[in-house]
Design a binder for these strands. Structure first.
Lengths: 349, 349
DNA sequence: ATCCACCGGGACGTCTTGTGTCCCGCATGC
DNA sequence: GCATGCGGGACACAAGACGTCCCGGTGGAT
């Protein structure tokens, strides 16, 4: 295991420290001597912060301080520090790049590839719980879908630092899958692990539209729908169009249509092409896509190279705010984005 | 340059953090689950400290916390962390080992070997100024000898974080060397750099004993001697017996006597063998060896493989409290100590 | 020679974080 | 049922971080 990997796991707080000092040293590489007010201004940092950091850099023999400002004492180490920072940042670059390209608030990437290592699902789950632990507050409403990833997330919730009195609601109805993977069950496990409460949704997710209309007038259903629409957080898995079409029991002509229209990703019964455009939809009970616009934060979770295209499709729909994925999927997404840019550039010439 | 070397220079504060976390994880390797009060007790640390560290280790996925205590989640990383800590400690082990073996309060080692790289003298000087910066207070009295190393130290004093109103006194008289290397000059440069004051010692260091007696009754000389005897710190260089005998102008029969008696190191006109026993002495003006016993802290500075034996001789005399040296000298000192131990062991059987 | 701009160092008040210590409810073993 | 150890919560106090301002020094421009 690389030293940088150990440090990332054991003392991740080193990175911001090194980043800051590298920033200062690099600035001095371009222009020296500089005073700390000038450095503070250039780097948009507090004067006191710069003073503290310069003190430490001086103690380490990297700079010397004179009446006219600060000078470097050792320049070769700066490039090597830059490389170290880059290594420690590791997936941080990719996280930030994808967040920027996809217009997301946050991307969290765990090492590995779910396609190659099933244990990565546990890491995805752990990262999701850590994230939720940071954002969830008492009395928040959390809507969750089903599926294997979210079931694993639910099992990981003991990682929470403290009980949280949230209301957990299934974001969709049952899909005829194993009871353990249904949104109802996931919601119940979530709630129990968090010390909160939950509401159940005793409906299938694939009713005919007429029945859907009739049932949506039921008071209980309206109540759950109202709760769902004001959820603070929605947590949902990412599926490929093909996989989800099969799970929803779509017929061959429907699947052919989706394929023909190049649908690759699915969420909430909607099928998206690579650009995030809806190419097909099935009615579904529970939250609909347009309901997501009123949600505080929509978190998509999923990993594995094979799901990268689906993830990109779903995320390009601009309904999500946060994505938690693995390195395998992230790298493929990045390549696809880069490829898209090259095509756009070629088309523009 | 190794990553660990970069970290040592740019963010040395990482080491105590990793050491602490390694300590906790290693304890759990032996015995788990453990509660934080038990860990606090075993490791002699505050309960709140342990709680904070466990929180971070939990966030990093290294441990999991249950109602019955803390368990490890990932054991292979612990051995690797141990190796990383060992690497980061670098010369710290040698510093602590030598301090222990020589009964010193502190040993400071800078990388490199003065015999191979003259720049190491600058590093020795820098380390000495950093050390003095930490210990010197206003109104302290500092006695300094001469020589090239201390002249370099004097030039390095701008590294001090703030002016210090200390009184600097030459610890000995002139030796007929270049004026720049004389204790008087070194003292003056020290004082000027520190913003303090200094006293001069207008005497040669190698007067005949009768003249020494006569002059020691002079009021001015008595005054300086009184000041020297109550010095808070003495800073002196380390010389080989041969080199110093030559500088002091000793005759061939005297040098032969020192050699015959296996004198290898010299300080304050005293010549020591490997065990720190005095094998010869010349009268000298200024501080005498026995005066050192009343000094708060005696700091010896010197480096280079070729001086290791001399350093060991001087330090074995038990007059010093702190030693600042380089890695070249330190490693040879360590080997000599280990060799002494083997000889003692063999002789004991 | 004077003025101005920038420098480092000093310092103070406020805010944030760290730490020691204690307590509560839970779980387990006897 | 009791004792012991657990994690989590919380509070008071201590320590450190930070923002902000000021002073004297330095050097360049006029």
């Amino acid at each position: 295991m690389e030293d940088t990997t150990i440090i990332q796991r054991v003392a991740p707080e080193l990175l911001p420290i090194l980043e800051l000092r590298y920033k200062i040293l690099r600035e001095l590489l371009f222009d020296q001597p500089l005073g700390r007010r000038a450095l503070a201004s250039k780097l948009q940092l507090g004067e006191r912060i710069i003073r503290r950091e310069l003190e430490r850099l001086r103690e380490g023999g990297l700079v010397e301080v004179g009446p006219d400002g600060v000078r470097l004492r050792s320049t070769p180490i700066i490039a090597e520090l830059g490389q170290l920072v880059h290594q420690l940042r590791g997936l941080r670059h990719l996280e930030e790049g994808l967040a920027r390209e996809l217009g997301l608030r946050r991307v969290v990437i765990v090492p590995g590839d779910l396609d190659e290592d099933p244990m990565v699902k546990k890491d995805l789950a752990r990262a999701t719980s850590v994230y939720l632990d940071k954002v969830l507050k008492d009395e928040d409403v959390l809507a969750v879908t089903g599926g294997t990833t979210l079931a694993e997330v639910a099992r990981s919730l003991p990682l929470f630092s403290s009980k949280r009195r949230v209301i957990v609601v299934p974001a969709r109805g049952g899909l005829g899958e194993e009871v353990e993977l249904q949104a109802n069950t996931v919601a119940a496990v979530f709630a129990r692990q968090l010390g909160g409460s939950y509401r159940l949704f005793h409906l299938p997710d694939d009713l005919p539209e007429e029945a859907m209309h009739t049932i949506s007038n039921e008071p209980k259903v309206r109540q759950i729908m109202a709760l769902l629409r004001r959820a603070d957080y929605v947590l949902h898995g990412i599926g490929t169009a093909e996989e989800m079409a099969r799970r929803r029991g779509l017929g061959p002509w429907q699947m052919e249509l989706i394929r023909k229209r190049q649908g690759v990703g699915e969420a909430f019964g909607y099928y998206f092409d690579r650009q995030g455009r809806i190419v097909y939809s099935t009615s579904s009970t529970g939250l609909r896509l347009e309901d997501l616009q009123g949600i505080g934060e929509v978190i998509a979770v999923g990993g594995g190279k094979s799901k990268a295209e689906a993830a990109l499709a779903v995320l390009s729909s601009k309904y999500q705010h946060v994505c938690i994925t693995d390195e395998g999927a992230a790298r493929v997404m990045w390549s696809l984005i880069e490829g898209d840019k090259r095509i756009s550039y070629t088309e523009g010439r």
